[in-house]
């Protein structure tokens, strides 16, 4: 779908970064804690003041309204936050509410079968039943929140993905599930993926280009 290009992106602790991700390419970033990996992703998503420009294919970020940019270039933060009562309320496309949900979902089924089915497919792929959407957020464990946050993000249909330690708190089974889901989405949507991961095993297993932040510079990993 779209490639991502960082053009002289600079924040407090990082020298200007120029980096091109092709559509459908996955690039890993690692580095010691405090080196500014998360800040780099936050800068791309335009959450902190910084210098530089980011391009989604031929469209510069500065020409796009911030909400649109953040929908199209989706950031998954290391810690997931939830603002509403139930999980389903965080999915604007599939509002489920109480007893009406079955009926509403049925109606939705006929309208947008693909979107709804797709989300259910992602949920199943991460080991959830579809009724997890009716769960209260407070019931969720840290790992469950992290996995559901990925589904929440994918439901926005981002054209590029920024993942911050997407598998950090997960057991091997769920880590594999998340990797599979991200890889499937990347291939199907041809989405660029910038993945911050401290796990060398993961970087070796999935392959592709890898960078490391060293002394405030982004350098190719050797």
């Amino acid at each position: 779908m779209a490639g991502l290009r960082l053009d002289g992106l600079t924040h407090r602790t990082l020298a200007p970064v120029d980096l091109v991700l092709d559509a459908g390419e996955r690039v890993f970033v690692s580095g010691p804690s405090g080196s500014g990996k998360s800040l780099l992703l936050r800068a791309i998503a335009d959450l902190d003041p910084h210098q530089g420009e980011v391009w989604l294919d031929t469209e510069p970020r500065s020409r796009m309204a911030p909400p649109v940019w953040r929908r199209r270039v989706g950031l998954l933060p290391a810690e997931s936050f939830w603002w509403a009562e139930t999980v389903g309320e965080h999915f604007p496309a599939i509002q489920t509410s109480g007893t009406l949900s079955a009926e509403k979902m049925g109606a939705f089924h006929s309208d947008h079968p693909t979107h709804r089915d797709q989300i259910n497919g992602w949920l199943t792929g991460l080991g959830f039943e579809p009724d997890v959407l009716d769960w209260s957020v407070t019931r969720l464990s840290t790992g469950e929140r992290q996995r559901l946050a990925l589904v929440r993000l994918l439901a926005q249909r981002p054209e590029a993905l920024l993942l911050d330690e997407a598998t950090a708190n997960l057991d091997p089974v769920n880590r594999d599930r998340v990797e599979t889901l991200v890889e499937t989405y990347r291939r199907e949507q041809d989405a660029a993926v910038l993945w911050v991961s401290h796990d060398p095993e993961q970087r070796r297993r999935l392959g592709g280009r890898a960078f490391v932040i060293c002394n405030g510079r982004l350098e190719p990993e050797t």
Binding site: P67, R70, R71, P77, S80, F81, W83, H90, P92
Partner: peptide, 13 residues
């Protein structure tokens, strides 16, 4: 902060 930024990241204004 976390919840506000989560909403921003979800594409809300």
């Amino acid at each position: 902060r976390g919840r506000i930024e989560a909403r921003l990241l979800a594409g809300q204004d």
